[in-house]
Design a protein around this nucleic acid. Sequence first.
DNA 1: CGCTTAATTGACTCGTCTCAACAAAAGTGG
DNA 2: CCACTTTTGTTGAGACGAGTCAATTAAGCG
Lengths: 257, 257
Amino acid sequence: MVYFMTSSKDEACGTVCHGNVACQDCSLHQLCLPVGLDSADLALLDRIIRRRRPLRRGEYLFRAGDPMRAVYAVRSGSVKTFTCSSDGDEHVTGFHLPGELIGLDAIGAAVHPRSARALETSSVCEVAYEGLEELSMKIRGLQRQLLRLMSREIHHDETMMILLGGMAAEGRLAALLSNIAARVGERGFSPRAFHLSMSRNDIGSYLGLAVETVSRLFTRLQAEGLLSVQRKQVMIHDPDRLRRLAGVCGDGAYQSR
Amino acid sequence: MVYFMTSSKDEACGTVCHGNVACQDCSLHQLCLPVGLDSADLALLDRIIRRRRPLRRGEYLFRAGDPMRAVYAVRSGSVKTFTCSSDGDEHVTGFHLPGELIGLDAIGAAVHPRSARALETSSVCEVAYEGLEELSMKIRGLQRQLLRLMSREIHHDETMMILLGGMAAEGRLAALLSNIAARVGERGFSPRAFHLSMSRNDIGSYLGLAVETVSRLFTRLQAEGLLSVQRKQVMIHDPDRLRRLAGVCGDGAYQSR
DNA sequence: CGCTTAATTGACTCGTCTCAACAAAAGTGG
DNA sequence: CCACTTTTGTTGAGACGAGTCAATTAAGCG
């Protein structure tokens, strides 16, 4: 199993792939599709899930235009989704951490509208969509969780729209970092110190900023003592101030620029 | 029934509210939740739907923070969804035409994350969420359509993210106008000439632009002969060129700025 | 028919992009 | 294992698109 020989440096969340664990034994149990299912239901769910061999950094999970046959759950590592513009360069639409579902935007047209590739060595569960639809009719908890996850995705994307439409560069980066910190935290790792698996280019593309701007912002935030960063390793010193920069108030409302 | 005495000028899509039509007899049948249901199923669906009295322009359908008990389908008129920033001004997250569902972003947290208010006199169907979850377990076609609509919403929001993150002001407005034109067209009205029910302010907020910029863009697009606009009435003269400005190529890919 | 709100237009400012150079990693092959 | 190339990230200087402020006009609305 040569695939598992990835350096720890190459793992964003520290999650190491342990081969073919069933949903039942998966540590992402309480974040992913299985939330609220009993072990009988989990056994049914397992039947429509295929654990693929891990993807190496840069490998495609699927490409824009591929027919949609499954949705995917990240099990370890991280994945980005993106479109290519006519002149060839990418626009990143999302970064996906373990426990998160990819491909939910493809259900409507039965075709994947974006491409997905691994940001680092990553393993992924493939959930046959037909089976998922079928099972959701039988297992109330599964349907509920699927709808919940899709709803959250909508909410997250709306939040990004507000961010991109209403906040200046600094706020955008602060929001992304706060968001990643929170998600890393939910997965049981320190929200204060983590590894960014994506390049500055990807960050810029996601936030609608030039790479140079992203780089300058990191330098600025570091100078202001909010965080320290070297290369891809980030340490957050003042999470509250970072969140305030990101425009989130106590009540979750956003402040305009 | 004083509510139905709205001037035709006040209706974005020309759809006039006809009172308590059942889903079966609704002209939005093939766009809304009922897609693919037979009349027995439609009768069941009708039982969880309440037709509310029409909203007048500016009336709230729900407010950010309200507990989520239902999702809503626009029946006539149009509705905007938005958040308020801490200093009180709005950020618009969506415009919703007849047949479109509102409140799908609230399922995850069981609380509405945004507010919704009518842009003009509008009628709306209230779909009790608990009933919808229940019924989707029984009616395969309903589940399928609900998932499809949510997936399309995700796809649409991603497209907006790409737009806001990657395109200049002109492209953003062109994209919005093309999009509205297409949706108006799907609803059986002319995609070449329509009424914008939202203010320049709303458009600016939605596109992440200042009102003044929106105004100047309209003037510029008109000067270039792409469209003519007076007040809220828009006539598109060159839909292809507009779509090209919006950055959409034949294959649906986007071009960067 | 005034009053208020919405839309337009102009002048000026500023944030972010672009272009360009350079530095530091990270691969690549002898 | 080291020299070389390529990729990725950082920094600086200048340009420009879109924001802000301010004034004016045009619509709605009571």
